[in-house]
Amino acid sequence: MDALNVKNLSKSYKSSPFSPHKKVLHNISFQIPSGGMTGFLGINGSGKSTTIKCLLELVYPDSGDVLFFGEKISAKVKKRISYLPEKPQLYDHLTGEEFLKFTLELSGDFSSKEIQSRTQEYLEKVQLYDARKSKIREYSKGMYQRIGLAQAISRKADFIILDEPMSDLDPAGRHLVKSILKDIQSKGETTVFLSSHLLQDVEDLCQNIVILDKGHTRYFGSTLDFIKTIKPTYELQYILNGKLNLRNTDQVSLQNEIDNLRKHNAEIIGVYNQSNLEEAFQKFIGTKL
């Protein structure tokens, strides 16, 4: 059974009572398999955050169905889902420790003893244990993002939705979050739906991707298959006249380039496939624009 099944989801907004409806989502459909991590990609304004809000009924879709583990959203299903919104606004009058305890109490899954131990465990996991007594409003952007992540992963959720979890993080913070996500992934029990603009991270973490463009689903499936859809580019590294040189070429010209370099007695160091998600995404979206 799919962890998430979205069928013909549509949503339109009115910016004011007298303005016309602006359609944000156009009958989008996709499925997310159980376990593993799925990236949710799209340029700004493509409808990613609206889709996520529709999934959780934070906004009501005009039409369409959303099924988590084969069931429509309800309090019972929500117990299996956790969510980190984009640029989260948390209860910043609380300390980090109070906040995590509050969210664990709200999830309704834990005894007070478990809440205590989980709070400590997840504060340590996101490296905020030393800042546990500080108010969240005193946290830096990165700390804020990490406490938000802690509330999303500390619950016993089968499905975690993360909307730009690494957007305000420095390289060390990104590395930490990635390692936490890899840890979740290695256990294989939880499905993660990760919306991000950081395509390198998505490529590193996600086996599947969903691409949204102007409110339409453009692609959903394997990340590797998606990357293969574009013509690969190769980077040639060679030494000529004692100097290291780099040259990019496509598959058709690659052999000619190598032959040509050999004629000039160049020493070829390596040929590297340059195809990646970022390049594939840009080409894909470029063709659709």
Binding site: L56, L58, K78, K79, Y83, P85, P88, L106, G148
Partner: peptide, 8 residues
């Protein structure tokens, strides 16, 4: 947004 994502 985060509060209403809880079973509430």
């Amino acid at each position: 947004l985060f509060v209403m994502s809880y079973p509430l």
